[in-house]
Amino acid sequence: MKKKKLKIRSWLRQLGPGLVTGAADDDPSGIATYSQAGAKFGYELGWTVVLTYPLMVAVQIISASLGRVTGRGLADNIRENFPAPVLYALVIMLLVANTINVAADVAAMGQSLQLVVGGPVHLYAVGFGVVCLALEIYLPYRRYVTYLKWLTLVLFAYVAVALAANVSWSAVLSGIVWPRVPLSSDMLTVIVAVFGTTISPYLFFWQAALEVEEVEANPKAHALKQSPSQAPSQLRRIDIDTYVGM
């Protein structure tokens, strides 16, 4: 029994950057996109999961591996290997996309709280933004990431809702295997939105940065290019972490 518990704990310790990044992908703006897709097309876009999941996992594993191998984030790696205009263009696009995404998320959080308790939605949104910013600045990484890992348990609420709701699982399977909705401009727009919110650029930078934070927070950890002996276990951990997290 003790050995089994130790194995479970050892397995859980492998979850970190990938789990947190995957949970972050289920943000309010993403949920709104998926909800609108479901409301308009039902289960007929279920087939997108077959494409988005492996693509998302592959890109995130590459991003995380770059961070762990080099000990630097994506922006730093781009700076080292590409001309400055490429770096500036990518960072500016990322900044714009992140700003819009964060604004949408914070606004959705404010509106959600307003639905529960009433009151001024703008004040709630500003409050959420200030709290998130303060936690990132003042809370040590190791403690902060521990809280984030535990908060991912909230996502099981989606599983509970799916089990409690009257879901036609045959229709779900049909939507994944054999969708019957003809392509239209509306469907193409929703498909682009689903892919865009699922495979988001900020996630690439985030997971790579989290891997760098893991190295800096652990005195025994080193960038894999400096300590190749750690590569097999760490790359395996990244694979497990990302597959589970996404």
Rank of each mutant, 00 (worst) to 15 (best):
L66F: 06
G22L: 08
V212A: 12
V59C: 05
R79D: 10
A104T: 05
K7N: 09
S112V: 02
W169Y: 13
N77K: 12
V116M: 13
E214S: 13
G46M: 03
D25R: 13
R236C: 10
G71K: 04
V145Y: 06
I176S: 02
V167E: 01
H122P: 10
P120S: 06
F156L: 12
Y147V: 11
N166D: 15
F41K: 13
Y243P: 06
L6S: 13
A160C: 09
A231R: 14
L173P: 09
F82C: 15
L135Q: 01
L45F: 01
Y124C: 02
D239T: 14
F156Y: 11
V117W: 10
G110P: 11
T189H: 08
E214K: 15
P179L: 05
M1C: 04
A223R: 13
L113I: 01
Y202C: 06
V161M: 09
G129K: 00
S174L: 11
G118Q: 06
V172A: 01
F41L: 08
V215T: 13
L133D: 02
A134S: 09
L203F: 03
T242Y: 04
K40S: 02
A171W: 08
V57G: 08
S168Q: 14
Y124T: 07
A97H: 11
V154S: 10
T189Y: 00
L94C: 04
V181H: 04
R143A: 03
V121A: 11
E214D: 15
K40M: 02
I61Y: 00
A23Q: 09
V117K: 07
P140D: 04
S170G: 12
V192F: 11
G196V: 00
V159P: 10
K4F: 07
A32L: 11
A58M: 01
Y144Q: 09
S184I: 03
A32M: 06
V212T: 13
E211F: 05
D186S: 15
W47M: 03
G129T: 00
G46S: 05
V244Q: 05
F82H: 15
G119T: 01
V212R: 14
I238G: 06
A58T: 06
V181M: 00
G129D: 00
Y138F: 12
A103Q: 12
L203T: 01
P120K: 03
L55K: 05
A157I: 04
A209L: 05
G30R: 00
I78N: 13
S65V: 08
V106Q: 14
Y158H: 12
L115Y: 05
S174K: 15
L148Q: 15
M109T: 03
G67H: 01
A58P: 01
K5H: 09
T33S: 13
R143H: 02
R142T: 13
A231W: 06
M109H: 03
A221W: 10
P85W: 13
L55V: 00
I137F: 02
K220D: 12
W169D: 04
P17T: 07
A97D: 08
R68E: 02
M109S: 08
L15A: 02
V181Q: 03
